[in-house]
Design a protein around this nucleic acid. Structure first.
Lengths: 209, 209, 209, 209
DNA sequence: CAATAAGCGAGACGGTACGTCACGTCTTGAT
DNA sequence: ATCAAGACGTGACGTACCGTCTCGCTTATTG
């Protein structure tokens, strides 16, 4: 019982994933989701299509894998200053989104404000239950950290006791996605600041009481 | 004032749009975006494929037309009670989104929380510039009314003078889309209320000043 | 009873044929038979498609009309020297065929030895009985003159009494078409001479008797 | 001498050609060239359209393949009696041509003297250079045998020394094609005999010298 | 001179087929 | 058991062109 897992019979899988995902990524950013063809990836990566399908049962799965790998760990700052922390965090997310926004757009449409890849991801999630579950799990995990930060801020009195961290975060993240997918307006640090300010402060007159 | 439009030469267009869009809508809700085939629509609507392509240069365009027609006029309440008005409005939007959420899901996935159609729309917008522009225009127009309502509320003192209506609205609408497309959580009246409350009131402790 | 035919009621046909045929001819020589589109001809000639179809019930009919008009009267020489006369006549035919051989070939295929138009004509004749009859009538009429010349030559002793003019002419004309359509070899005056020589003289040894 | 061909990698081609060509042949003779639809062939042969296009890049290519296969080996008799040999050979060719003459004609036009298929072949040759080359090669090869026979006849004195075999053969084969494609007259054994007689003997009076 | 009949331009429509693309499955032989 | 190679089925897409139709307008002949 030396090894971790009993070595199964037959030839072991070669280390192909890396090469394939690299090539796929290239196609994805160069020609967008539609322009990502499994045949092309196979040929360019010097890999048999069969092999690709053995690992990713679907083009969608492959694409998701590519993007998942692309998702570098976003650090959640927790300095005690909730306003600054949120702003920083949102800016990081915005950076990632903006990167995908530019993918697959022809040069002439370089300023195209839409965001194909993110939407394709949602589509893939809708097409395959497993992808949906996977993505939701990923997001849940990622968000859990932020929600914890918010919760701590609430407990130490930085946020009102009746604050619902989840709703608050929906407002913040949602605004980013809304701009990305629907209105197409820019999402940058300046916007993140305004957003955080509005969400934290609220918009009711101070003369409330 | 002889007439609004001089009758143009050539055979007038027959009233095909309605029938075609009806059929297309049926397919969309029954089998989802992928299951919408131009050939099938043509055949079922008793229309030549050529004719369809004469009006909608692409399957994407057809689908957008279907959904655009589906978008019944959402009324924007303006009673003077901004909290109630916003809640009502958001609920209406949520209703529309939920309707699309159920479209094209196989029965086994009836409870699938994802929302293919909306995402497909975003994808279509990313694929064809004209669709993107169209959609953004539609949304801009629809939102303009709400923004006006918010602006009035601000001017009559219901909202703080430094309120940015646009940001505020991003938070509200964005949250809905975020739940629909990303987290898959439900969007109903109860959520709309919590959302409006959080956004209006903010989350900072009242003892602030 | 003044005119040849009682003038019919309704607007008389305008003089469109010329323009239409001109345009069609242009397309035919420029892009070949397939490249001849009725829509294009209509538009370019500033004529309604309906009008075209009123005169030529089919694209085939139109094309035949074009080529028929192209067929300038070939004169049949009858000097008494049957060998020279035949050679001259064949050369004229060869000229016409060569002209059609070049039609619709892209430049790179300028030396393409095939002859689309002539074949298309035969195809059209096969598709529509009326075209077939028309073409055969035209050819019959044209050939009648040559056959008469041959017959006269036979009667005045220039050809053997048992000569069958029709068979003889088949050999001559047939050879040209065979080269044009099948082998693709050139047809020029030199060939016409060799051909006539062979057909007239025969190939059996003179020591025959 | 390990083997004629190293077994190439990949799934070997299934034996589809036969079935496809059979079906295509059926359509061709039943409904003519226009009535030959790739979709129909695919469906009837139980073959994917894609697969057909993988082998025959064009409907034209498919049709040519059908006819090429149909071209059963024509034997060239070489008994030493050039007159009889030629007659027999021409009759064989005539048989093949007559078979194609009947293809694709509606019953009412059963006696239609035209010959669509042959012409379509010529058209296909004009449309695609590769088909043209192929066909010319086929014909060249087939004719080479006859030309050799003629040459031998010349050398052994059955034909005059100055005989040009090629020109002679043009006259014979050409006459058949001419009748088939242009005049529409019958081509049978009787005609072959008259043809050969005329071509061999010539038509000049014997009193020539 | 009005009624009628046909010609015409413009363009929408139905229909049929073509050729293409990409996905995902399969069948080989070789490692 | 995996891999490379590549053929195959499937389904749809978008295109092209033909020939028919439906308008409104124009130009002739006829009563």
């Amino acid at each position: 019982m030396t090894g971790k897992h009993a070595s199964r019979p037959g030839r072991p899988r070669s280390d192909i994933d890396g090469r394939a995902l690299d090539v796929a990524l290239g196609h994805l950013v160069a020609h967008g989701y539609t322009g990502l063809s499994v045949d092309a990836v196979a040929q360019e990566a010097g890999v048999a299509k069969t092999t690709l399908y053995r690992r990713w049962p679907t083009k969608d799965h492959l694409a998701v894998a590519v993007i998942a790998r692309m998702q570098d760990a976003v650090e959640v700052p927790d300095t005690g200053d909730i306003r600054a922390d949120l702003t920083d965090y949102l800016e990081q997310i915005a950076l990632g989104l903006n990167r995908m926004r530019r993918a697959g757009r022809p040069d002439e449409a370089a300023d195209d404000p839409s965001a194909g890849l993110v939407a394709e991801l949602a589509v893939a999630a809708a097409r395959h239950n497993d992808i949906g579950e996977l993505l939701r799990a990923v997001f849940a995990q990622r968000n859990a950290v932020v929600l914890a930060v918010l919760e701590r801020a609430r407990q130490r009195g930085e946020l009102r006791p009746d604050t619902e961290p989840e709703v608050l975060f929906d407002q913040l993240a949602g605004a980013l996605y809304y701009r990305l997918l629907v209105t197409g307006q820019p999402i940058d640090r300046a916007y993140a600041q305004r957003l955080v300010h509005s969400a934290l402060t609220g918009v009711l007159p101070a003369i409330e009481e």
